[in-house]
Write a protein that binds this DNA or RNA. Structure first.
Lengths: 223, 223
DNA sequence: TGTACATCAGTGAACGCGCGTTCACTGATGTAC
DNA sequence: TGTACATCAGTGAACGCGCGTTCACTGATGTAC
């Protein structure tokens, strides 16, 4: 028996047809099951229903496959963040809250991607595509940071880059310490989402956002 | 040739004398070189100059050895943090700054410990000793959080636990994204220490610390 | 102080296993004419 | 529309390797008397 063709009903003859995709999916499945360490080239091939030599037609080695997975991960991550940010609608604070939740949701529902991206020891510069995907995901955070400080005067306005890095680090810290599904998760007296939201609110408060004495009215939604 | 006896001048006969220690040190060395994944029981034994069967006298399996390494790590981590905090002398803000630097310094100078502690997939509850060491290290952060909010009135005082968790998550996020020595480090337009310090300052500002309209005088050090 | 004995800690040989990688190969697909 | 041929993608057998684990064993150490 062979599970080689998961999606679609195409017949699997001598040629697989979409082996590259199948290998990436297999890698994701294996990483999800046993972490980025417990995944081998040979097993990915077996999972795709293909001989152990076949993967070499598509990837130089295990690392190249992993880097590809990480790249896909960053692409999906960037899309999820962009969707959550939704161009800052209806206002930056509301959108930022969604962004934070989307960050944690991604880390939780796509642990395989997340660990390939951040914990597999892959250099973010190991391929131009990976680097680009990485930067594009981070760009969402930067855009959000810029929107948040847009109303501030030059005097009190903090660097957007710094703001973005702080939010990223906090979200990543919470995700990797408390937000994972596996055994390494630490117990927490609240949900990761609550912890992140509270942290970001306090932090923005420290920056003077929302700009309490600014031109725009605060216009808070009820609770 | 055999490097079996690193420290001390004891003779190595049939008995190693301190194999358990030697294996832990070997594991640290191997993890530092190749990450927590690239470390095997057999290689640790070879490193200690001992037959591949010998480690079984001291550890049930690879995971038990890893958990032991993580435990040592948390012990050393807790000590380093406690030393940096120094009971909050001369004041909580100064001590907190040292604490943050000590956190990042540990992650950077002891990457093997750090990854065994946080990235090797070991459950923090996998042994009572590990759990205790873990809690003791976190207790320092909690103590610091309590000292920081000590002067605040019950009205505005935030929960110490939350404060400690936020600082921990931010420090961990920065350490794992930007503070490592290996290839996975991401470039940063400032030092991790500066990023952390700035983040913590903004965060505390958001909480109303230092308590600008409190009873105690601010007493800021120059610069 | 010496001896007998129990316990401890490491030996070394052996096993089965899965991995990474290579190789000449072959079935399938696409394309020029 | 058909045929010849080049290229592509996967085969399957083979290799050397290091790992984890076991086993009966043996040298070293400690202790009772």
């Amino acid at each position: 028996m062979s599970w080689s063709k998961h999606g679609g009903g195409g017949s699997r003859g001598y040629h697989h047809g979409n082996l590259k995709e199948a290998l990436i999916r297999a890698a994701l499945e294996l990483i999800a099951q046993k972490g980025p360490a417990g995944f081998t080239f040979a097993e990915a091939a077996r999972w795709a229903g293909v001989s152990p030599a076949a993967p070499y037609r598509h990837f130089r080695d295990r690392d190249e496959l992993l880097a590809n997975v990480a790249q896909r991960g960053f692409e999906a991550f960037g899309e999820a963040l962009a969707r959550a940010w939704d161009n800052g609608r209806p206002d930056a604070m509301t959108a930022l809250d969604r962004l934070g939740k989307a960050y944690l949701a991604f880390a939780r529902t796509e642990p395989a991607y997340y660990s390939a991206m951040f914990e597999a020891g892959i250099a973010p510069t190991s391929s131009p595509e990976l680097e680009a995907a990485n930067e594009q995901a981070f760009a969402i955070l930067r855009t959000a940071a810029e929107a948040l400080i847009a109303g501030m005067s030059g005097q009190t306005r903090p660097p957007a880059m710094m703001l973005a890095l702080h939010i990223w680090a906090l979200a990543h810290g919470i995700a990797s310490l408390f937000g994972r599904g596996d055994a390494a998760r630490r117990p927490l007296p609240m949900s990761p989402e609550e912890l992140l939201e509270a942290g970001v609110l306090v932090y923005l408060q420290g920056l003077g956002i929302p700009d309490t004495d600014a031109t725009e009215p605060p216009e808070r939604a009820p609770s």
